[in-house]
Nucleic acid binder design. Structure first.
Length: 375
DNA sequence: AACACGTGGTA
DNA sequence: TTACCAAGTGT
């Protein structure tokens, strides 16, 4: 044991001491939260949960995971489902390309692996939507392979244990962290160890207000010893936020409203939305709606009134969305699509059957609260 | 290497 | 309110 004692009564350990791994595993076994995907570690369930968890809070994922597993219990069900149905199950979770990848990967797993998710990290890594993190997560959690996972939590925990001063974005850092984690991992305990590191990162070694008092491995932590915990990890790049104003139309005709489907490939690909667009410099939201509907759909409209102003954020854009109730003026015009792939006139009550971006969904809820007043 | 890709919580 | 941040992947 490579322990050294400090001058005081506390034992101080070094991160090179591999007993840190055993300590983390024991802590996890006592403190882990009961989660639906921690019941059986079925490869399919691990794949779906890990994909949902990419850049997404665990508390948000749980209900989506339960609903998905009820509806789509295996790989074949995903391959046979329509993209529209998958998007509906995903609505609100964000990063919708994950769904498209899930479906593509399901097709490959059926065709090439007989419906069995591969256990080999290299084979997993080749599947769409599975990067370094998810490949390692499936290989270790579902198949017991001794490979370390390095997600945002593991990165933060490792940066603090090592008191890593270089920016974690550096290409060298990732390798170094994976090697450190691999050294700490007790042989045969990858499932518990990997989850221990991530669970510790989310519950104890948090980005803000880390609970070092409650940390099972603080005595191994170089940043704790140095008092630099709040300054780790060091990060460099930062994107500037951009303010955007958008105006959309809830276009009514014969008791229906007009919705259109976004093209594949870009932002919110395959989701439905209300027509509209960016409000240009020196233009009012009202003018923008009229212009956008003329440009996008080739129709002229009359504004009946404002429905709501919604503030939200999409990637690095801060958006103010103005929504107006409109009718075709003159009536009887037929919209022609420009950027959208598909469009539909639907009764407001049917809006729940389509996948919308979250700001549009909020607008729909407002619409439905007001329904009966002026539809 | 750096940026696109969603969303909602926190300070 | 603005700004940062969170269980990443693809290009």
């Amino acid at each position: 044991m490579a322990k050294t004692s400090s001058s005081g009564s506390n034992m101080r350990h070094d991160p090179e001491d591999e007993s840190i791994g055993t300590c983390l595993v024991e802590w996890f076994c006592r403190n882990q939260r009961p989660l639906p995907w921690r019941r059986h570690y079925d490869p399919y369930a691990v794949w779906i949960s890990e994909t949902m968890l990419q850049q997404t809070q665990m508390t948000k994922v749980v209900p989506y995971f339960e609903r998905w597993m009820d509806r789509l219990p295996n790989v074949r069900a995903v391959a046979e489902a329509s993209l529209d149905e998958l998007l509906q199950l995903w609505e609100g979770l964000g990063y919708y390309s994950r769904v498209r990848h899930l479906k593509k990967a399901a097709d490959i797993i059926l065709a090439r692996y007989g419906g069995q998710i591969p256990s080999d990290e290299k084979a997993l890594r080749r599947l769409p939507g599975i990067g370094d993190y998810t490949a390692a997560a499936i290989a270790s959690l579902a198949f017991g392979r001794d490979v370390p996972v390095l997600d945002g939590n593991a990165q933060r925990v490792t940066a603090r244990l090592l008191d890593w001063e270089k920016p974690v974005e550096d290409s060298h850092t990732k390798k170094a962290f994976q090697q450190a984690l691999r050294r700490w991992m007790p042989p045969g305990r990858a499932r518990e160890f990997n989850q221990a590191v991530m669970e510790l990162g989310s519950m104890v070694c948090a980005p803000r207000r880390p609970a070092c008092d409650a940390c099972p491995v603080f005595s191994w932590c170089r940043a704790y010893a140095a008092g630099t915990v709040p300054h780790r990890p060091v990060k460099t790049r930062r994107l500037a936020a951009e303010q955007v104003t958008v105006a959309v139309a809830v276009l009514h005709d014969n008791g229906n409203v007009f919705i259109q489907k976004r093209p594949p490939g870009g932002l919110m690909a395959g989701l439905w939305e209300f027509p509209g667009g960016k409000v240009e410099e020196g233009e009012s939201p009202e003018e923008a709606v009229k212009r956008e509907l003329c440009e996008e759909l080739g129709v002229t409209v009359k504004l009946l009134g404002k429905i709501a102003e919604i503030r939200h954020a999409v990637t690095r854009f801060r958006i103010r969305l103005h929504a107006f109730r409109c009718v075709l003026d003159p009536s009887g015009q037929i919209p022609t699509l420009r950027s959208a792939v598909e469009a539909l006139w639907v009764p407001p009550a049917f809006l729940d059957r389509f996948a919308f971006p979250s700001a549009n969904r909020r607008l729909i809820r407002i619409l439905q609260e007001h329904s009966g007043l002026d539809l």
